[in-house]
Each structure stands twice: as structure tokens, then as C-alpha cells.
Design a protein around this nucleic acid. Structure first.
Length: 803
RNA sequence: GCGGAUGUGGCGAAACUGGCAGACGCGCAAGACUAAGGAUCUUGUGGAAGAUAAUUCCUUGCAGGUUCAAGUCCUGUCAUCCGCACCA
């Protein structure tokens, strides 16, 4: 057989697949459905190694499931709206529209070069009007159901990108896109009521099959905590009650230790009571000062507590009657809990630092050493400390007191049990050009008027100047022809919303669109939605999963509740791929300077070799350093596969190869389903090794082996199959393995003396202990010498002789 | 600080519910074929001692513990990575 010319073979099959479309998903097919989803590509450059790490195991799964008789939906598309595409377009001096058109061609072309078996008839692109028509439609539903509102609010703002960012986009006080410092700014902000869904999202997290670390990250993000909402009286100097103040605490057991109360700087109680506040101006100054701080400053100054005393107001501890001072400080967040806290310096480190800085007295209510630091709950609870200075609860164990105090508080009406969530409503607008326009009209007379569904899509106008301006106004505010319109309600002059949606909008529902990508009557046909249901396996990088998955859960929950989709869960199972690292141990991506382009590797070694090598390097979920080392091993493996016809002898599966063949079928199938390509490939290599040692392979063995290798190396196996058997390997089905053929009738078991390995003996499978022991006595009499105290035998596993 | 993970040969890494640690591959060594080998094939390869043997000892970050038996379970500890972070 002539030597393997991968270029010829690979392009031959890729052209054939492109023409015959064997990977088309069939709506309503009788076969059981299986939906494999790979996170769609960001349309901002070439595919990189990270993409291969995620897509190829998904491709293997799709191919495997087709062999197993499933009607597989394995689609692809482009995430094209939003900052990445817009920034890339600006960098290349191309209009985003043209950039995206080219970018889509690039990623689709490269996908085909990788041999990815997507259904290329279902390509979607989030910036196509036929797609964002339905993104806008979903927004309309959210708006009409009261889940979207516009409000002035302090938001994360990136002065560099000149846009509002969600918390998710501004982690660590840095803009997720440009890396610049984020500041707090007062803006008109569209919010989606995501907070309402906190509990449902937690349930979603419980239901989805996913790695623990990802689940925990999401639970942390939602940040559920249970505690007590306590009501305190606010009194003036003379002791007259002027207001209520509610605070939230998870540590009600420390309530006897309150020595002051702190409000968030923005807390509006101050404004309501400004006549009682003697130093109102000072308070306003402090407020201004905090607002100017960037998010980063706030974080880096964690240790330096700042704040101001509110003169003229006091809070009354409802349990002790104690009168304590009121402060404002920026360590209290206005948007969490009630924007106010009770401060117990002995048992909360922040309160401790604040009390030290402001010379506020402390009361210790739980034992422990508070001379240098607070004794906090993660210490006093596990160590079972006792209460002190706490009236009737003094001397009680904390755990017990916590419960009793909570009951008492509820009984006496001082407060009630309360659950809080860290997660906030989702700021949903950006002052950028390249995004979905909001389908609403802003009328001075009627307020915000939603468009009629029949007027969708509201197309993004093509403008020449799409750069954001200095003030941070949206570029669309300059597109006056588009912006000015008539109010559909009253007919007066009105304006459109000049902000656009964030890039998360299009990605928060795209798996639904794949089900019916060209439907112009609905986001997807309900019957088709029912047929395809939830995504069975979803894979992609693990970088943005926390946010993306939560947004996805949120939107699908909402769509489910309004009856727009028949399933509540978008995804059943999620695998997150690790990163490919460069030689510096850094993430390899398009921005990495040490990046290796997959196209280069493919050009030199072929797609099949690249697919195998990348996945043989390490486990799917682990980060893997890229190296060419070992790729020659993959090449010779493929070379040996290619020359299998040279040692073809016999037809049926031979007795000698029965076991290895069955093992390989089983192991590879399981590994494909579990996303463990590295061990699957090892098993395939082991098979080749054994067969070559015996210097023959039968026709039937070869046929089954080719099918089993096909999901990872689709080109070479297609070619060999055609050469040896004629016809297309894709028409085959996955071979069945025989459970009985997996273990031979004689097995070798280790013999230990006092837990140390001394010998092995060959026995019949399922032999009894007596048989094994007498065998040992016969073959290794010295091991059974002397007094034997005990013998432990685990059938078919091990024999341990204790002397 | 909180949460999650990882730590195994010269290297990338395997190891199911505790049961022969190091599968598979790279690299390395020796050999075969060869005019030649950076091609191909065969064999060997965790470390140390021992004679190149038999054999013995050591070995899954470190220190303890449970167990007939620990990479795997428990306690403590160190290092690295990731996520969150003044969330009351």
C-alpha cells in the first residue's frame, strides 16, 4: 500500500462531507435525538488551540452517537455582536458588519478543515437581523412581563470602553474586555430582574450535571445566605423615635454585642432624616468621595476603613435597649441586604477594624481572644465556644444560643427570618454601536413604549461613525434619522433607545435557535423545540461559564414560564475544557504571543494527527501545556493503522484478539461519553500494539477497529474503510462488545505476605480461597511457611497472607 | 479571608467502589535492516544497593493516623492554579 498522504485523503473526505451533508440533523426523525452543543465561536479572529480542545471531544461524541443510531444535532454559529467583535473591527479599521461577515467565513472554513461534523445548514450569527429579531422578541417579552426596567443607578463603568459593565464583566475592578480600571458611575440603566430568579437558578445548578468547581462558582455567585432581618428604632438626640431601620445579619447570636450601626454611604435614610442630621454636609462629602473611588481602590483599600459618624441620630438595640451611634461607611454595600448592618466589633473583623479606627467601644459576647482580632463565626462555631455578656443566653453554646435568640427575636416581633442573595439584577445596556437595538421607543409623554412584535426586527442602522464618544454616549445617539420617530401610542415625536444590548444577549438563548434557525414566525417551532428538548451535552471553555450558564438558566426559565419553550432546563450536562497553555505556562489564545496556530500544525501533520495529539497530551478538564513532543508517536500510530491492510488475514474475529477488541470497543465508547479522549487513544494504541505483535488482523477486526477509531480520526478511517470494504464508514454502526469476552478464564492474582507483594499465581477465574491457597503452597511453599494468623482473599483480586 | 481544585519517573500522563503504582506515548539505551538513518522494526527502561544474577530496600509534595492492604480514606502542613471577595 502506498504511504499515507494526509493532505489528499483529508481534503477528499472534507469535500465529500461538504457535498453530501451526512451530518444533517433531521427534525422529527424516528431515531432518538441527541443534542451536542459546543459553545459557539466568538467572531473575532481565527480558531486557536483552545477551540480544538473543546470541539474535538464534542465532535467525537456526535460521531459516536450517530454510530449508535441517534439523530444527532451538533450545530455551530458565531457570537458576533458585542465588544470583542467591535473592538477587533476597530483595530482592523473595518466596519463591524464587514468584519463579522469575513469572520464567519473564517471560522466556518476552519471548522471544516478540522473535520468537525457540524450541521452546516444550521449556522447562526447573533448579529444577523433574522437572529436578533428573536433576541429583541425575548427582550420584549421580558419588558412586557415586567422583568426589564430602566432606572438611574450606580453602575460599573469603563472609562476606556465608555460603557456600562455588569458585575460579571468587571471582576476585580478591571474591565473584562480592555483590562482598564472600572469606576462607579451614575447612569440610566436597563436592568433585567435576575435577582428574582436566584432560588430557581440555584435549583438549576443542582439539576445540571457538571463538575463541582463550576457548580460552586455559580452558587457563590448567587450567594444565598440565611439570617435575620432585625428592626431597630432610630432616635434623635432627645431619644424620640424618628424612624425604623432594618438590618440583615447571619450572626444573630452576637446581637448583645452591638456597639454601633453602619449604613451604606448611599443609604437614603440619611436624606429622609436630614433635618435631624447635624453634619449632613460632611455626610454628603463622604458620599462624593466614595463615588469617585474606582472599584479597584475600594478593593485595595480593604484594610483602611473609612467612614463618617452621623451626628444627631442613634439606633436602639431592641433586645438590650442600648443606644448606639450611627455611622456611614463604604464597607457597607447599598445593594446587598438592607444597605445597613449592625456592628459587633468583637465578632466581625470589619467591624473590629472600623471600631479601632473610630475609637468605638466593644462588647465581647462569645468567649475567645479578642485582643488582636475579632473572633468570628468560622472560629467560634466549630470550636463550640460559649456565650458571655448575653443576658439569659450567657454560658450557652453558640449553636444553641443562635437558634434560641432567633426564636426569641421572631416571637417578640423584633425581626424575622430572611434569605438574601448576592446576585443583583443584570445591567443590560451598553453605550456601544455594535449590539442589538432595544425594541422600545422613549416618549416624553407616554414613557417607554415597547414596539409591536410585528415591527421586529428593529434593524441596527448602518452608520459610518460607530466609535463611542468622550462623554460615553452611545454612537447611535448621532444617528438621528434612525433615532427620531413617532410614538406609536400618542403619535408625538419620540426617540428610540440609543444604547444597545450587551454581547451576552445573543448568547443567552442561541441553543434554542439552532433547533429552528430559519423560522421567521417564532424563535423556534414549538414542535421542534419539543422534539429536540434540552441540550444533552454542552461543552466549551470554562472561563465564562459562571456568567453564561446563569444567564442561560435565567432566560430559559423565563421563556418556559411564559410558555415560549417547553423545557425549563437548557442543558442536561456540561463539560468544561481545560486550557491549552503555551511554553510559558500561560493560556494559549489568539492574544497569546507564544500561541501555536492549529492551522500550522494541521498543515504539517494533518488533521487526524493534530486531533489525536492534542487530546493525547492530557485530560480534557485539565490545563495542558502544548508541545510538539510526542506528535511523532501519533504519526507512527497513524502510519501503523494505515498499513493494517498489509497484515490482513482471515475474516471473522479471531479467538486471540477477541478480548483486546472487546475491551477497546467498551473503553473507547465509555471514554467518548465521559470526555476522556486521552485514555481512549491509549486504548486504541494498545490494540494496535497487540495486533501487530501477532502479525495479523482479520477483516472483521479491522472493520470494528476502524469504526471505533473514526470519532477521533475520521479521515484516515474513512479512507481505509473505503479501500478495504468499499462504501462509507458512516453507514456503519458501533460494534457491540461482549461482556463475557472482557475477562479471560484464567487470571493472574497477586500474592502478598503482610501486605507486601511476593508473587503472583495463575488461577481459574472465580476460584475459591482454598484453591488459591493450595496453589500458592504448591508453587511458593516458602510463602505459606510458619504460623499463619490470617488469610485475606478478595476473589479475583488479591490474596494476602498475614503471619 | 471564603470556596474549588491540583501535587505521581527525565517529560506528557494512567490507575474503577482502598487491592500488583507508573497503562499509553515521548525521550533515552541496545540491537536488526541499511551506503546512510533524524525512516522502519525488535528489546529494555521509576530510584538505590547487589556482580550485568538471585534478591533486598525505597518511591505518588511533606508529617502523622486508620486498615491485612492507602496515590486513593482521615488529621495536620507546604506549594501551585482557578473562582469569589468589605455580601453583614
Amino acid at each position: 500500500m502506498k504511504s499515507y498522504n494526509f493532505k489528499e485523503v483529508e481534503s477528499k473526505w472534507q469535500e465529500k462531507w461538504d457535498k453530501d451533508k451526512p451530518f444533517k440533523a433531521i427534525d422529527f426523525d424516528e431515531k432518538p435525538k441527541f443534542y451536542v452543543l459546543y459553545e459557539f465561536f466568538n467572531v473575532s479572529g481565527n480558531l486557536h488551540m483552545g477551540h480544538l480542545k473543546g470541539t474535538i471531544p464534542a465532535d467525537a461524541l456526535a460521531r459516536y452517537k450517530r454510530f449508535n443510531g441517534y439523530n444527532v444535532l451538533f450545530p455551530i454559529g458565531g457570537d458576533a455582536f458585542g465588544l470583542p467583535a467591535e473592538n477587533a473591527a476597530i483595530k482592523h479599521h473595518i466596519h463591524p458588519k464587514d468584519f463579522v461577515r469575513k469572520g464567519m467565513d473564517t471560522i466556518i472554513g476552519q471548522s471544516k478543515k478540522l473535520g468537525l461534523s457540524f450541521d452546516y445548514d444550521r449556522i447562526i450569527c447573533t448579529s444577523d437581523p433574522e437572529y436578533y429579531h428573536w433576541t429583541q422578541w425575548i427582550f420584549l417579552q421580558l419588558f412586557n412581563h415586567g422583568k426589564a426596567y430602566k432606572q438611574k443607578g450606580t453602575v460599573n463603568f469603563c472609562p476606556n470602553c465608555k460603557t456600562v459593565l455588569s458585575n460579571e464583566d468587571s471582576q476585580n475592578g478591571k474591565c473584562d474586555r480592555c483590562g482598564g480600571d472600572v469606576i462607579q458611575a451614575e447612569r440610566n440603566v436597563w436592568f433585567l430582574k435576575m435577582k428574582e430568579y436566584s432560588e430557581k437558578l440555584l435549583q438549576n445548578v443542582d439539576r445540571i450535571e457538571m463538575e463541582d468547581s463550576m457548580k460552586e462558582a455559580q452558587r457563590n455567585w448567587i450567594g444565598k445566605s440565611e439570617g435575620i432581618q432585625l428592626k431597630l428604632d432610630i432616635v434623635d438626640k432627645s431619644g424620640k423615635k424618628v424612624s425604623d431601620l432594618e438590618i440583615f445579619t447571619t450572626c444573630i447570636e452576637t446581637v448583645y454585642g452591638i456597639t454601633f450601626v453602619v449604613l451604606a454611604p448611599e443609604n437614603n435614610l440619611i436624606d429622609k432624616l436630614k433635618d435631624n442630621v447635624e453634619n449632613y454636609q460632611e455626610i454628603l462629602n463622604y458620599r462624593k468621595q466614595t463615588a469617585l473611588k474606582s472599584e479597584l481602590d475600594r478593593i485595595s483599600q480593604v484594610k483602611d476603613k473609612t467612614g463618617a459618624k452621623v451626628e444627631g441620630l442613634f439606633a436602639i438595640n431592641p433586645i438590650t435597649g442600648a443606644k448606639v451611634p450611627v455611622y456611614i461607611a463604604d464597607f457597607v454595600l447599598n445593594n446587598y441586604g438592607t444597605g445597613a448592618v449592625m456592628a459587633v466589633p468583637c465578632h466581625d473583623q470589619r467591624d473590629y477594624e472600623f471600631a479601632k479606627a473610630f475609637n468605638i467601644p466593644m462588647i465581647q459576647v462569645i468567649e475567645g481572644d479578642v485582643s488582636k482580632n475579632a473572633v468570628e463565626k468560622f472560629e467560634y462555631i466549630p470550636k463550640n465556644y460559649k456565650m458571655m455578656n448575653s443576658g439569659e443566653f450567657t454560658g450557652m453554646k453558640v449553636k444553641e444560643a443562635k437558634q434560641k435568640i432567633a426564636d426569641m427575636v421572631e416571637e417578640k416581633g423584633f425581626g424575622k427570618k430572611q434569605v438574601n442573595y448576592k446576585m443583583q439584577d443584570w445591567p443590560f445596556n451598553r453605550q456601544r454601536y455594535w449590539g442589538e437595538p432595544f425594541p422600545v421607543i422613549i416618549c416624553d409623554h407616554c414613557g417607554i413604549v415597547p414596539l409591536d412584535e410585528k415591527d421586529l426586527p428593529l434593524e441596527l442602522p448602518t452608520v459610518d461613525d460607530y466609535m463611542p464618544n468622550e462623554k460615553g454616549d452611545s454612537p447611535l445617539s448621532k444617528a438621528t434619522d434612525w433615532l427620531n420617530c413617532k410614538c406609536p401610542k400618542c403619535g408625538r415625536n419620540a426617540k428610540r433607545e440609543s444604547d444597545t444590548m450587551p454581547n451576552w444577549a445573543g448568547s443567552s438563548w442561541y441553543w434554542l435557535r439552532y433547533i429552528d434557525p430559519h423560522n421567521d414566525k417564532a424563535l423556534a417551532d414549538p414542535e421542534k423545540l419539543k422534539y429536540w428538548g434540552s441540550v444533552d451535552v454542552y461543552t466549551g471553555g470554562r472561563e465564562h461559564v459562571t456568567r453564561h450558564i446563569l444567564y442561560a438558566f435565567f432566560w430559559q426559565n423565563f421563556l418556559y414560564e411564559i410558555g415560549a419553550v417547553p423545557t425549563r432546563d437548557p442543558f442536561t450536562k456540561k463539560f468544561g475544557s481545560g486550557l491549552i497553555l503555551d511554553d510559558q505556562g500561560k493560556k494559549m489564545s489568539k492574544s497569546s504571543t507564544n500561541g501555536v496556530s492549529p492551522l500550522t500544525v494541521i498543515d504539517e501533520y494533518g488533521v487526524d494527527a493534530t486531533r489525536l495529539h492534542l487530546h493525547f497530551l492530557g485530560a480534557f478538564e485539565d490545563n495542558t501545556p502544548w508541545t510538539y513532543n510526542g506528535i511523532n508517536g501519533i504519526q507512527s500510530f497513524l502510519g501503523r493503522v494505515w498499513s493494517l491492510p498489509d497484515i490482513l488475514k482471515g475474516d471473522e474475529v479471531s479467538e486471540k484478539h477477541k478480548m483486546i477488541l472487546n475491551k477497546t470497543i467498551k473503553k473507547v465508547g465509555e471514554d467518548i461519553e465521559n470526555f476522556s479522549p486521552n485514555t481512549a487513544i491509549a486504548q486504541l494504541m494498545t490494540f494496535i500494539k497487540e495486533v501487530r505483535a501477532d502479525k495479523y488482523i482479520t477483516k472483521e477486526e479491522l472493520r470494528q477497529f476502524l469504526i471505533v477509531l473514526n470519532p477521533y480520526a475520521p479521515h484516515i478511517t474513512s479512507e481505509l474503510y473505503e479501500y478495504v470494504f468499499g462504501g462509507n464508514i458512516l453507514n456503519e454502526s458501533w460494534p457491540k462488545y461482549d461482556e463475557k469476552a472482557l475477562v479471560s478464564s484464567t487470571i493472574e492474582i497477586p500474592v502478598q505476605v503482610n501486605g507486601k507483594l511476593k508473587a503472583t499465581v495463575k488461577i481459574e477465574k472465580d476460584s475459591t480461597q482454598d484453591v488459591v491457597v493450595s496453589k500458592v503452597k504448591e508453587e511458593f511453599p516458602q510463602l505459606a511457611d510458619g504460623e499463619i494468623r490470617k488469610i485475606i482473599y478478595v476473589p479475583n483480586k488479591i490474596l494476602n497472607i498475614i503471619k
